[in-house]
Each structure stands twice: as structure tokens, then as C-alpha cells.
Write a protein that binds this DNA or RNA. Structure first.
Lengths: 327, 327
DNA sequence: TTGAAAGCGATACCAA
DNA sequence: TTGGTATCGCTTTCAA
């Protein structure tokens, strides 16, 4: 700033103000400063800013995996929604593990974020303690946390699954199997499984068969293998309810290889409204959980928080059934 | 620190050293300082540390889009490879735009990263200037930059495409069309297009027809639409060479809807060895560009750099043809 | 509309 | 083994 000030013939203070767009600096001076700063390749040192103002400008975010189109979409919505606020996102990946989450949260908190966004509502007690001690706003997203640490933006997995099961039942499917990740390796997946079981029960359907597709993250290959594992037993089923669209797609293709006609012989459903569900032929019946919108809403909540709004928000973005050709 | 120093009757300097475990401070003093700091509820200010030492512990990373399995995989490899080094990744998304890249790079540099990793080797002159001025190691990845700013870890798009075209030619395919993003909207895509054209030329194949699938990022839907756009003209082609697997998958499904037999009537190839290429039925011929390994190698290069190794590294991770059922 | 001074909390460097 | 001093780059505050 001193260098820029020297070149434009003003004080560093004026440069500081000009760069922040302070209107008490004349428009002419502001333009001059901006231009010279650019030309000189001046880079604003936000560390010094953080140091001086005691505000880090960071929002910490944890996701189970960035290699998942849904979480990536939420992150993008959040990122877009925060554009222009000067907030920067600090991303940490938990690999679907609460232990890894603890480690990641600790790392993120060390950077003094002004808020933290956690994907998922299940945490170790130690993690909860850390978060409480940090004294910063916490937003839990995706799942509607039962015992929230602060704000919540998400949807009900059980609700979403209930929509799927009802659609299946209306189409005369009774004998369902659920394909998801191993018990305990993915809390969201478990919520979906329970949702399916509950919905089937309330509709008076036979007991849902649960098929373990392996540890999270589960994807296309896992859907494929789950069907292979089922083998001929698949003939006794009316529908495969899958924990996600990639899993459903893998299952679908394996069924096709086995000569099973979809949906005549068997219905298949997914979750998450991934691109593959639409493009696949037949297209896959799924649920849109509005991943991008979750991110956007979180950005709004954060803006409210930074604007001084303090009472905890609880936002259900809902879910929408997307009918495809697999039911 | 001053307060702690006063209480233990030492200087702030000694407290600083004691807290860092500096052995030049007597063990007795260290213990005393630690205990008093704890009791007084002293919290170390890492921002001040970063400010003073000018070491942020950050490595900045730009990607065109995080919603892309390949880049996400590279990011994961990098993240895993850096675990335990205390380095934290700062992610910025450029949306495939060099203008957005400039903005993102500026934002990232403002956090004083100790190194910066850029996906892609094409930048605005202003961005290059900014990077040079920053005086930190630069690693350009994915593309083998022709005029590198520092280190390079990637593969040759032209090489990879040449493998595809040779495979097609060996299977008697002569009339090729390339489906990719609009000119100028994706540098990697352009390199692939040029690679296809060059390879076809060197093999004496007829001129490659170029089909514009729209602005980057292009995905499944774009492949679908590109085929729709082609309409009956597709009957005069031997092969669709797609810029990525998702595009190829979209094209494949649209062909199926049109009653075109793959690969009997038409070959289709992808790029990137996405999961969908393997799971799709028929599986798609593609190229593995070792996305995760790129991330791993970058982590190694960074570790070398932080260990004092300074000469620029240039690493070609190569690419591997993956034969599927679509050729 | 602009500027001067002080200081955020830590540490590098030099001296004792 | 310990301490004094001078910053790092920015912004708050007060003054002109």
C-alpha cells in the first residue's frame, strides 16, 4: 500500500480506503488507486487484514466426499451464494467417517472460521464439545438433525424415501429390496433405509430385504455387485430401492446383462436426481433433494448471521419425486 | 503472552519460545509457562503467527469445476498425499474461464499460500504476472503446459487422443466426428480436438467433423443433444469421438433411442475413464489419465519443494487406453 | 476528502 | 538461557 501510495501521490491510508471502495475517497482517486494497484501487481494481504480486524473471513465446510455430484453441487451453491461477501470457504472432507470428521473439524477450527457448515447431523461427543467451545455459528445440512447444534438446512431422508415407496406401491410393487452402504458407514444411507422400511410397513408391504453394498462411499460398481450378489434371488423381487442414483444405475446395467427387463420384471429406483438418472435409458425414477438450493439457503442463513440475526433457523427444503422409466 | 510473562516473571519472548517447546528455554520455565498459560485460559493466536512468519500453511488449488469426478479425484489424491504435513488446501473454482481464474487466483493469493496449484496451463497475462510477483512455487497440472510458470504434472491430451484414434482406425473406422465444448470455452477440450484432427490426418483419414456441444462444462445432456442435432447425418459417420465419458454416455444413450446399434453401426469413445464408462452397457472405450495419481504426484512435488528442492519438475503421468465395447 | 499515529500478537534477530 | 527491539500490512481513531 505504501508503494501504491507513493506512485499515486497519496497516503497509504487513502489507498486502503480506495481499495475498499470507501466513498469518502473521491471517485477520481479511487479509480487512480485501483488502476495503479493493478498495474503494479499489488495483492491485498488478507492475513494482515484478518490480523488487524480479528475476522478471518473464513467459513469452514465439511462434506463426506467431494467426489459426489450432490455434495459438489451444494458446495457450489454455497460458494456462489457467498460470492461478493468476501467470505472464503475452507473445505474439509470426512470420508463418511465421524472419526475423520473430528480431525477435520479440529483442523478447520484452528483457522478461526467465522462459521462452520457440517454435512450431516451425527457427530462424536468430542466433536460436539469442540464446536460448542468454538463459539461460532454452526449449520448442519442435508440431514434434518434431530439434536441440532445450531442452524439446520436440509430435507428428511425418510420423507423422500416414503415418496419412492408410495410410487412403487401404487404401481403394484410389493416385494422390495433396499441396496445401500454397510450399517454404520453412512448415516444418511441408514436414514434412507429406515425410511424405506417404515414406509413399507405403513403400507402393509412384506418385509424389506436389505442388501449390503459395502462400505461408503458406494457407487455404480457397488450397485452392480449387489445385483450380482443377489443372483437368481432377484427374480423373487418386485423392486430394487437404491440408496443413490449411481448405485441404481449400476444395478440397472447389471440387470440388463442378466436379461432382466426393467421395468417389466423389476422396478429400480435411485436417489438424488443425478444426471445419470435422466440420461440413462431407461431413465431412473429418483428424488430430487435440491442440492444446489441447500447450498444457496445456507449462504442466505450465513448472510443473516453475519448481519446480526441470531436465532437458530431450521429450514426444510423438501424433496421432489422424479418419475422415470424404471418403475 | 505479555500477561502470561508477567505472571511467571519472564519476558514475552521467553513465553513464546516456551509455548513452542523451544529447548533453549529451561525445562522448568517451559513447564511453568505452559501451566500458567493453561490456567489463565490463554489461547494461541495463529493468525498473528501466520502474519508474522508469512507462512500460512496453505496450498492454493484451482480447478475448472469441482463437480467433475476427474478433478475431484485429483484433489483427493493431493489432499491425501498432503495429509500429515500440516498443509491445508484452499480451493478455488474457475468455471472453465480464464477471467474467473484471474479473480480466483487473486483471492487465493491474498491468503498467502505457500504454493499454488493450477489446473490447466493457459492463463491471462495478468494472471501470469500476479503469479510471478507472488514469488511462490507454481504447479500447473493436467495439461502439459507449453510455457510453464514452474512445475508441471500432467499428460498430453494430443497423445491420449491419438491412442483413441489409432484404436478406431485399427477397427476400420474412418469417418470420425468430434463432440466437444465450444471453441475457446475449454482449453483442455480444444487440445483434445486438435489431437484428434492431427491423428486422423497422420493416418490419412477423411476430415474430422467437429460438433459443438455448447459451452463448457459439457456433460451427459450435451452429448445427448449433440447427437440429436446431428440427426440423420449420423448415419454417414463411423465413429463419435467425445471429449469426455459423460458426453460419450449421453451420446450413446441417444443413439440407442434412435435405434442405432453400437458398435455395429457406429463406434463411440470417451475420455477420462469415469466410472460410467465401465458400468455402462455397452462399456465405453476411453482413456485413463490417472487423475488420482496426478494429485499424488503433485503432493510429492510440494513435499520436495518444502524440503528445499528447487529445480522445476516436469512430470508426464501418461495415459492408458481402456478398451470398451463401443468400438 | 485526506493524513498521521498507534497498535493488533507474534517472532526474527541481535545482544547479553 | 533470556531479553529488547523492531517489524509483518493493515485499519481504527482522531485531527485537519
Amino acid at each position: 500500500m505504501r508503494d501504491v501510495a507513493r506512485v499515486v501521490g497519496k497516503s497509504p491510508m487513502t489507498v486502503s480506503r480506495a481499495l475498499r471502495g470507501d466513498t469518502t475517497v473521491s471517485a477520481k482517486t479511487r479509480a487512480l488507486v485501483r488502476q495503479n494497484a493493478d498495474e503494479m501487481g499489488y495483492v491485498y494481504d488478507s492475513t494482515a487484514h484478518v490480523f488487524r480486524t480479528q475476522k478471518s473471513g473464513f467459513v469452514a465446510v465439511t462434506v463426506p466426499s467431494i467426489n459426489n455430484a450432490n455434495f459438489a453441487e451444494t458446495f457450489r451453491g454455497l460458494s456462489d451464494g457467498l460470492e461478493g461477501t468476501g467470505m472464503q470457504l475452507l473445505l474439509g472432507s470426512t470420508n463418511y467417517s465421524v472419526d475423520k470428521e473430528l480431525e477435520v473439524v479440529r483442523q478447520l477450527l484452528a483457522r478461526n472460521p467465522e462459521a462452520i457448515v457440517l454435512t450431516g447431523g451425527t457427530h462424536l461427543p468430542q466433536t460436539r464439545r469442540l464446536l460448542e467451545k468454538a463459539q461460532i455459528p454452526v449449520i448442519e445440512i442435508w440431514d434434518l438433525a434431530s439434536d441440532p447444534l445450531g442452524h439446520v438446512v436440509g430435507f428428511s431422508n425418510a420423507d423422500a424415501m416414503s415418496k419412492i415407496v408410495h410410487d412403487l406401491a401404487e404401481n403394484g410393487r410389493r416385494k422390495l429390496a433396499f441396496i445401500g452402504a454397510s450399517e454404520g458407514s453412512d448415516m444418511r444411507g441408514s436414514a434412507r433405509r429406515e425410511g424405506v422400511i417404515a414406509a413399507a410397513q405403513s403400507l402393509g408391504l412384506p418385509e424389506v430385504r436389505v442388501i449390503d453394498a459395502g462400505f461408503a462411499p458406494v457407487s455404480m460398481r457397488h450397485g452392480m455387485r449387489a445385483v450380482q450378489k443377489l443372483g437368481q434371488a432377484i427374480k423373487q423381487l418386485d423392486a430394487l430401492v437404491c440408496v443413490s442414483d449411481p448405485v441404481a444405475f449400476g444395478a440397472l446395467n447389471e440387470c440388463r446383462r442378466m436379461g432382466i427387463n426393467i421395468p417389466q420384471d423389476l422396478a429400480i429406483t435411485g436417489f438424488g436426481n443425478f444426471e445419470v438418472a435422466t440420461v440413462s435409458s431407461p431413465s431412473i425414477t429418483t428424488v430430487n433433494v435440491h442440492a444446489n438450493q441447500i447450498g444457496r439457503k445456507v449462504a442466505n442463513v450465513l448472510q443473516d448471521i453475519f448481519a446480526g440475526q441470531i436465532d437458530a433457523q431450521w429450514i426444510d427444503v423438501g424433496s421432489t419425486l422424479v418419475r422415470g422409466e424404471t418403475v
